[in-house]
Design a protein around this nucleic acid. Structure first.
Length: 567
RNA sequence: UGUCUGAUGGUGUAAUUGGCAACACGUCUGAUUCUGGAUCAGAAGAGUCCAGGUUCGAGCCCUGGUCGGACAACCA
């Protein structure tokens, strides 16, 4: 921003979210020498979803805003759940969203040696011990939220004994689950997480990066804060459910940190969206049970799903910006997400005419065999987008819903005796309709006025409606996948006892049809986005082949007409 | 019967740190339009969870409640 601009916008208040307020307050005190360093720390055990997008935008966006850095760090401390497949998809998604970690790609597993050393140090200082209790007993000894726990009989082992046992744990002498390393804090602590939390467990499982080097793996709480510390993270931003973990985060840091520097954990509310589910477990269930076709099914709230659906990174970033950051539980109306894509796509996508549900329309007075090439505007919102030709002829298809035999009220599309404009073409008048034996309309006969074509003298004539259309002989059949919300209710996870969230699936979340598109789409490439005039935004799916084009509906156009009809 | 935490129009976020609640989406009008889209103009909608208190003045401060969320994986 130039100084001039600054002068004219002094009226605008900064309006910072609470995290940025904290940062600015710290910056003004000179904390961390003015350094801001964040990180996005996914566990590579699933695909990223739009909730992660919020976090990615926050972390990378915050670093950018304060001239700082943001790391990408895989929190890979549990080899039984993690896989490189997820590592790859996560990197792809973060990049696609428009963020870059430069050379700062890290893995918690990079720190396993350091973490082990620190564990030894903590044992040496008498703050950790090896426990032989099994999982069930540990849970029992931990007490409940309202009742204090009791100490393990192994809690008083000597430092030497603990050291010896820990070494042997590392060396693989013990079976999975037979021993754990626990921090010695306080079994009566009001915060359950402080009741001697487990630091290391035995897992004879190969790790996607360290192979079989380790058979003991650190737990999240122990690994996370130390990783932040090692990377020089200043602000460790995470979601609200980790609020209770903060004392432990700080306790571990206190065991190893030297000097003044400490990363600071700050929690914000995770994103919830209406008409979808966001939990990794439920998303995985939808994939495994084949409710959807995969993680990138366009109905999924995953980043790859939204990408395939036709969402743009810009629209997702803008969405993240608009929903804000706060600490109270957030349930965002999916309509806001839809608004964000439409807003972006309206400006950038070329228009094309496609008829989804065709009915034949015959121009009785149009010369047999004549074909006109009409000039069509590619994008009225973008003068640079140019023009294209669309073929016009005697026999056309229009949308079945654009004709009504006995319209009521303010229907201003085609009706018997009525006039409408065919976009870029002529004004036509409905003369007759043909029906089959069951009463279905099979053809609509019209006449056209030859001096009303767009640009001609009489083209200014007022008609109430303009319809999109396609020349029957020139149109290309295309597969169109009409996607709708995956769930039929706002909060699908709210189910009565004994019921499953999948009962709330929207049975009409996908409708596959064959539509007729204007010939100009013939060479459309996968990923290309269009607006089908008067219908919505569509993008070319990856399933497209040279002879078979597949479109996904990203989102329908705002439709005040059918909305008013439904009311 | 614990600890942590939150509460502002239908939804989400803000309020220059105590000065009579703003912005976006949604909703509703009207204008305009060769997309019932877009655009433009306007409107309705909260008196800030409740009750006290401090103050000339409270969404912001204090006290006490109420309601919601998170936490009892060898998950993250």
């Amino acid at each position: 921003m130039t100084d001039e601009n600054k002068a004219t916008t002094t009226e605008e208040k900064p309006s910072l979210n609470f995290i940025h307020q904290i940062i600015e307050e710290e910056l003004s005190r000179g904390k961390n020498q003015g350094r801001v360093h964040t990180r996005f720390p996914p566990e590579p055990n699933g695909y990223l979803h739009i909730g992660h997008a919020k976090s990615i935008c926050l972390n990378f966006g915050t670093a950018h805003k304060y001239n700082g850095l943001a790391n990408l760090r895989f929190d890979d401390t549990n080899p039984v759940k993690e896989d490189t497949e997820y590592v790859d998809s996560i990197m792809e998604d973060v990049r696609w969203l428009g963020f870059d970690w430069d050379d700062r790609l890290y893995y918690a597993s990079d720190y396993f040696d350091q973490l082990y050393e620190w564990a030894v140090k903590i044992i040496n200082e008498g703050h950790a011990y090896i426990d032989d209790l099994n999982a069930e007993q540990i849970s029992e000894y931990r007490g409940t939220v309202t009742r204090a726990g009791k100490e393990s009989p192994y809690r008083s082992r000597t430092v030497g004994e603990n050291l010896d046992l820990f070494t042997r744990m590392k060396n693989g002498e013990f079976a999975d689950g037979s021993k754990v390393l626990r921090a010695k804090i306080d079994m009566a602590h009001p915060n359950m997480l402080m009741r001697d939390p487990i630091m290391y467990r035995i897992l004879h499982t190969d790790h996607h990066r360290t192979g079989n080097k380790w058979c003991i793996y650190p737990m999240y709480d122990y690994a996370h804060g130390q990783s932040d510390y090692l990377e020089g993270i200043t602000h460790s931003i995470c979601t609200l459910e980790f609020e209770v973990h903060r004392p432990l985060y700080e306790w571990y840091l206190a065991q190893v940190a030297q000097g003044d520097y400490r990363p600071r954990q700050i929690e914000f509310a995770r994103l919830n969206l209406t008409y979808t589910v966001m939990s990794k477990r439920k998303l995985l269930q939808l994939v495994n049970e084949k409710v959807v076709t995969g993680w990138d099914d366009p109905r999924m709230p995953t980043i790859c799903g939204l990408r395939r659906r036709g969402y743009t990174p810009e629209s997702l970033r803008n969405f993240a910006d608009v929903i804000g950051i706060a600490k109270r539980d957030q349930l965002i109306d999916v309509a806001l997400l839809e608004f964000c894509v439409r807003e972006d796509l309206n400006k950038r996508s070329n228009r094309v005419m496609t008829v989804l549900n065709p009915v034949k329309l015959i121009l009785d007075n149009y010369p047999e065999g004549q074909v006109e090439e009409l000039e069509a505007v590619n994008n009225p919102e973008d003068a640079e987008a140019g023009f294209r030709k669309v073929q016009f002829s005697k026999e056309l298809y229009i949308e079945r819903e654009d004709f009504m035999e006995n319209p009521s009220g303010k229907f201003f599309r085609l009706k018997p005796g009525g006039e409408v404009r065919l976009k870029y073409g002529y004004i036509i008048k409905c003369e007759d309709i043909v029906k089959d034996s069951e009463g279905n309309i099979t053809a609509i006969h019209c006449t056209y006025q030859d001096d009303t074509r767009s640009g001609m003298v009489n083209s200014n004539k007022k008609v109430k409606g303009t319809l999109h259309w396609v020349s029957a002989a020139h149109a290309v059949p295309v597969e169109v996948r009409l996607y709708d919300r995956l769930f039929a209710v706002e909060t699908p996870e709210n189910v009565e006892e004994g019921h499953d969230f999948k009962e709330n699936i929207n049975p009409a979340s996908l409708k596959v049809i064959t539509a007729y598109a204007e010939a100009s789409v013939t060479h459309a490439k996968a990923g290309e986005r269009f607006q089908f005039e008067r219908l919505g935004y569509f993008c070319v799916d990856a399933d497209t082949t040279a002879s078979h084009i597949v479109f996904n509906r990203t989102v329908a156009l705002k439709d005040t007409w059918t909305k008013s009809m439904q009311a």
